[in-house]
Amino acid sequence: MAIRVGTASWTDPTLLESGWYPADAGTAEQRLAYYASQFGLVEVDATYYHPPSEQTARLWAQRTPDGFLFNVKAFSLLTGHPTKPSAIFKDLRPETDKKNLYPADLSPQAYEDLWTRFLTALDPLVEAGKLGAVLFQFPPWFTIRRSNKEYLLEVRRRCSPLPVAVELRHKSWFEGDNATETLDFLRAHELPFVGVDMPQGHRSSVPPVLEATADLAMMRFHGRSDRWTSKDIHEKFGYEYSVDELREWVPKLREVAATASSTHVLMNNCYSDHAQRNAAELIELLDED
């Protein structure tokens, strides 16, 4: 019933301005070391916007204690999100005037090389035993259909033996009998499902389902902002959970943790130090329970 709690960022500018870090944590190395003294898990969000370098991953491994884990978010192009050409390795970029690129815009060889470089960059974390999972957060238009299920299996195959986790963000995966079908499919192929807590009632909303479909269970808390549709990312995620709201999740997390080898809980309400304070509060609540 191991439950690890962490946050989806340790470098957000508003976090640095919040005063959460002590005054003597003035460098990137010192801040990561301090974060790792408070939590045993972190999600790397920056890798969604730019593929990581092997040297950066090596520094992460060197600057954290044994047993610390990094969940690395998959690069946007690998999940079918629009990606700026400047984010792609220069020698793999197609000649185009498009502002955003999708997988089909790359040559087959460039696409293969992108996958290889992304996964190879994680080698230092793998060697240090510090890679928790590669998080594949799919776009809201990634609906339940055969071709998308086949892509989930392709992701698993490409990443093997690295652990992956799947976050589905279109409600079709959870409508009616589809919810059981979705979870059964993931369970049959040992693909960890990522549950989310997020604002409800929006076109992009998915229900807060928490299930273990593999050895790893994962839950991400996006907040419950009433500005969820805002283009300002801090308005969208700038929500601080109350202790009572977090307490509601304790028995649910305990229940799912009893069916998984490990459970990861990430606070993604990354504005100021909301995520860090909520993570610490959730740890206290789990300890009390």
Rank of each mutant, 00 (worst) to 15 (best):
A2C: 07
A2H: 09
I3Q: 05
I3R: 05
V5N: 10
L15I: 01
E17K: 15
G19K: 03
Y21M: 04
A23S: 14
E29D: 14
R31C: 11
R31S: 11
L32C: 01
T47A: 12
T47M: 10
Y48Q: 09
H50N: 09
Q62T: 12
R63P: 05
G67R: 06
G67L: 08
L78N: 13
P82L: 03
T83F: 04
K84Y: 04
S86H: 12
S86K: 13
A87K: 06
R93L: 03
R93N: 06
T96I: 08
D97K: 11
K98H: 13
K98M: 12
L101G: 05
Y102C: 05
S107K: 05
P108D: 00
A110V: 06
Y111I: 03
L114N: 10
L114E: 10
F118H: 07
F118Q: 06
F118V: 02
T120E: 15
L125N: 11
A128L: 09
G129C: 08
K130W: 10
K130R: 13
L131M: 15
L135P: 02
Q137K: 07
P139L: 03
P140S: 03
T143F: 07
R146L: 09
R146S: 12
S147I: 07
E150M: 00
L152F: 01
R158Y: 03
L162H: 11
L168V: 11
E181Y: 02
V194E: 00
D197F: 06
P199E: 07
S205P: 05
V206L: 06
V206Y: 05
L210I: 13
E211A: 15
T213Q: 08
A214M: 03
D215P: 02
D215N: 08
H222W: 06
W228C: 06
T229E: 15
S230W: 08
E235N: 08
K236T: 02
S242K: 13
L246I: 09
W249D: 04
K252T: 05
L253I: 13
V256A: 09
S262T: 15
H264I: 07
V265A: 04
N269M: 11
Y271S: 14
R277Y: 06
N278T: 13
A279Q: 01
I283A: 13
D289L: 10
